[in-house]
Each structure stands twice: as structure tokens, then as C-alpha cells.
Design a protein around this nucleic acid. Structure first.
Length: 273
DNA sequence: TTTACTGTTGCAGT
DNA sequence: AACTGCAACAGTAA
């Protein structure tokens, strides 16, 4: 599922549906997805009460007070909630039985998702170690430090934005949208951007991720009944997945190239190097 | 039947 | 330190 808007949408869904619930039991079909002690995960989660649902970048945080569980959905992780009988499905990997009779299920076709159970006082170090950048908000994402970082890098702007260190939350869809909106070619070495272009990238990152949240995220490969998969952001995408279609701004044909191993959509007229 | 591709990240190799 | 390519995995499309 997830870039930041999709994760935030899942967070809101979970907040509405499982906040205050206590975990009665946990079943894990794929132990390797648990990155911290597996024994502790199984032993300590039962009896934990979900006191808050939080998010940092693309990481979902189940806050139990003293303990936290950090869940990353990677490419295809999803949460589903069932009452009574949970259907059999080979891609259901974790089951959390709750005290209201519901079962929260984690589904992940590719098994890339990760789970970390930490004490809350380890949270800051966890994200510091990953060098996770600021949230893409006006308050946290300061233009001045962003500009300084861009001026120090020769990397193409797109992979630089994708690595989460300058700002948290952009993924392959939204980064293409941001660069199109900012009229910046994704291969442009960061330090070669004009100050005006840097400012546009900064501002559009905030604007477009916020729009994504307002629209409830986007659903590309569709699934049903998973939390947070009723978003409409896909209706607002301008270049992602629009290969061969006219640019909404200038009607040039949208191109798809490969950059840093990722499919990259752009308008060759609006986004010059 | 192969091969390439897919909303991500971390690691091994320079 | 900083970069690149690839692996983790499964499904789909060409």
C-alpha cells in the first residue's frame, strides 16, 4: 500500500476501530517479519492495550504506553479487521485477537513488512539510527536546511527525495507527482537546481502529501475491505501511471524512464534538466 | 515459458 | 562516507 498518505489513512482507520482494545493473543505465521526478539513479541503483546495509534513517516506505531510496536507495510502490507470467523488466506501472516471479539489481521503478499516491539524510550533512537528526516509539514520540514542539503549533493533529485533522510514520507508515486508539479526533471543533480526550483520541490512535497492524506490515499492495485483502501487520490495523479497520455499542463506526451531502478514518470516539456 | 515490473528498505559490494 | 545494485517475496503482464 503505502506512502505516507496511505499509512496515515490506515492509522486513522485503526484509531477509529481498535483504539482502546487489548490484545488477547497473537499468532505469527512468518516469524522473520518480526525484527526484534520473536519470543518477546509473542510473550509480551498479549495483555497490551492500544492506547494510541501514531505514525512517523511511513512507519505505523501501535502505542501501548510502556511498549510500542512499529509496523512497516513496505510494498503491500495491509490491515484487515474481522469479526467472528477469519477466512483462510495464504497471505494473512499475523493475527491479533482483540478483547471485543475482533481479529486484526496483517496481510502482505510479498512478506516484506516488518514488526519491531520496543520500549517507548527506544523509539527516538530507532528513527535516529535510520536517519529519518522530518515530517512533511510546514512546521517540521524547514526550507533552509533542505536547501543546504540539496546544495551539498550531486545525486539526482528523485532518489535523494526517496531515501527519507531529507524528508519522510515520499515514495515512488508521490515523488513523481511532486517533481512534475515543481517542473523539475527527476535526474537533475540536486545542487544544480535553482533556488526557486528547490523551493517549489519543498512546497509541493508538503502540499501533495497533504492532499494525499485529505483524499484518503490512493489505491492503485485494488483490493477490497482492507483498512485505508477507499482513497481517491488516484483520481488526482497527474503523471504517475500516465505514460503515453497528455501532460495536464502542456499536452506533451508523458514519458516513463528508469531512474535508480525505479519507474519514473515525467513530462519531457515541463521538466527539463 | 521467460523476463520485467511492482506504492520499500537495508545490506553488500566498491 | 557515499554511492550502486540487488535481495527479500509473490503475483501479474507482456
Amino acid at each position: 500500500m503505502p506512502e505516507l498518505p496511505e499509512v496515515e489513512t490506515v492509522r486513522r482507520g485503526l484509531e477509529r476501530l481498535v483504539l482502546g482494545r487489548t490484545i488477547l493473543s497473537v499468532e505469527v505465521k512468518v516469524p522473520k517479519m518480526v525484527k526484534t526478539s520473536y519470543q518477546s513479541f509473542l510473550n509480551e503483546l498479549p495483555s497490551q492495550r492500544i492506547q494510541a495509534m501514531r505514525r512517523r513517516g511511513k512507519y505505523l506505531i501501535f502505542d501501548f504506553g510502556q511498549l510500542i510496536m512499529i509496523s512497516h507495510l513496505r510494498m503491500e502490507g495491509k490491515y484487515l479487521l474481522f469479526t467472528d470467523q477469519v477466512p483462510t488466506n495464504k497471505h494473512f501472516h499475523l493475527f491479533f485477537k482483540l478483547d471485543d471479539g475482533f481479529t486484526l489481521v496483517y496481510q502482505d503478499v510479498r512478506k516484506f513488512g516488518t514488526f519491531d516491539l520496543l520500549s517507548k524510550n527506544q523509539e527516538e533512537a530507532y528513527f535516529t539510527k535510520k536517519k529519518l528526516g522530518p515530517e512533511p509539514t510546514k512546521k517540521a520540514f524547514k526550507y533552509a536546511s533542505f536547501e543546504r542539503a540539496l546544495m551539498r549533493s550531486d545525486k539526482p533529485i528523485k532518489p535523494l527525495l526517496l531515501d527519507q533522510k531529507l524528508v519522510a514520507g515520499l515514495g515512488n508515486i508521490y515523488v513523481d507527482e511532486v517533481l512534475w508539479a515543481a517542473k523539475v526533471h527527476p535526474e537533475t543533480p540536486a545542487r544544480e537546481l535553482s533556488k526557486a526550483a528547490m523551493k517549489r520541490v519543498h512546497d509541493q512535497t508538503i502540499t501533495i502529501l497533504q492532499l494525499g492524506i485529505e483524499k484518503g490515499g490512493s489505491t492503485i492495485r485494488t483490493y477490497r475491505n482492507a483498512l485505508g483502501e477507499d482513497g481517491t487520490m488516484q483520481d488526482y495523479l497527474r503523471v504517475y501511471g500516465k505514460t503515453g497520455q497528455p501532460c495536464p499542463r502542456c499536452a506533451s506526451t508523458i514519458e516513463k524512464i528508469k531512474l535508480g531502478g525505479r519507474g519514473t514518470h515525467l513530462c519531457p516539456h515541463c521538466q527539463k534538466r
